[in-house]
Amino acid sequence: MHKVTTRLVRENQVIVVEDLAVRDMLKNHKPARAISDASWREFRSMLDYKTVWYERELVVIDRFFPSSASSSACGARRNTLPLNVRTWRCACGARHDRDVNATKNILAAGLAERRNACGAGVRPGRESSPAGGRL
């Protein structure tokens, strides 16, 4: 995990992750062992401190963001999407793999959140000099 997190942080200026409720996910006994074996919580904490060390940015998307149920092509949102449904077709005709679609949506949401936090799109005003613009 150290090698992977270090590589991710060194190669990227911004890393976007989804905030997962690991403790709640462990209550479901079917995937609990695989989740704890994957050490998601430890992976996230490594990303947290390494992004600070390398002066990178870690953007965390809210766990309730509908990343799997929203179409990355048109933005339409499905009301329900059971966990056993791995692929689905949107009304716009796009066919989505659940995980790939969620990844695209999480990245887009993270970059949009970053732009809003940075104030992108807001043009700074010009400073006027006391000499009326003359030097």
Rank of each mutant, 00 (worst) to 15 (best):
Val52Glu: 14
Val14Met: 08
Ile61Asn: 00
Thr51Trp: 06
Glu127Lys: 15
Asn105Arg: 08
Asn79Pro: 03
Arg63Cys: 11
Arg41Thr: 11
Ala120Lys: 02
Lys3Pro: 00
Ala69Met: 14
Gly133Thr: 01
Ala131His: 14
Asn79Met: 06
Ala21Glu: 11
Lys30Ile: 03
Lys104Tyr: 12
Ala102Ile: 07
Arg89Lys: 13
Cys118Gly: 13
Arg114Trp: 12
Arg7Asn: 04
Ser128Thr: 14
Arg95Trp: 04
Asn116Ser: 15
Ser70Gly: 01
Phe43Leu: 11
Leu83Ala: 02
Val14Ser: 02
Asp24Ile: 02
Val16Trp: 05
Val100Pro: 00
Arg23Ile: 15
Met25Asp: 06
Glu57Phe: 08
Gly93Met: 10
Pro66Leu: 03
Arg86Met: 02
Leu58Met: 02
Arg98Lys: 07
Arg98Asn: 01
Leu111Met: 09
Ile106Ala: 12
Arg86Ile: 05
Leu58Glu: 08
Arg56Trp: 05
Met1Ile: 06
Thr6Cys: 00
Ala69Phe: 00
Gly93Ala: 06
Ala32Gln: 12
Leu8Cys: 13
Ala38Ser: 12
Leu26Ile: 07
Ala108Gly: 00
Cys92Val: 07
Val85Phe: 05
Gly133Pro: 02
Thr87Gly: 03
Thr80Ser: 12
Leu83Tyr: 05
Gly119Gln: 03
Ala131Lys: 11
Ser129Lys: 10
Arg77Gly: 04
Asp19Thr: 15
Val60Tyr: 04
Asp37Glu: 12
Leu58Trp: 10
Ser129Trp: 15
Ala91Lys: 13
Asn101Thr: 05
Ser67Asp: 07
Arg56Tyr: 01
Gly119Asp: 07
Glu127Pro: 02
Ala76Met: 05
Glu55Cys: 01
Arg89Ala: 15
Glu42Asp: 14
Leu8His: 06
Gly93Lys: 01
Arg126Gln: 11
Arg63Thr: 12
Asp48Ser: 04
Ile61Pro: 06
Glu127Tyr: 14
Arg7Gln: 05
Leu20Ser: 04
Val17Gly: 01
Gly132Asn: 04
Asp99His: 03
Arg63Ala: 13
His96Asn: 02
Ala21Met: 10
Glu113Thr: 15
Thr80Arg: 14
Ser129Leu: 13
Gly125Lys: 15
Arg95Ala: 07
Arg10Cys: 09
Ala102Asp: 15
Glu18Arg: 06
Ser45Cys: 00
Asn28Lys: 03
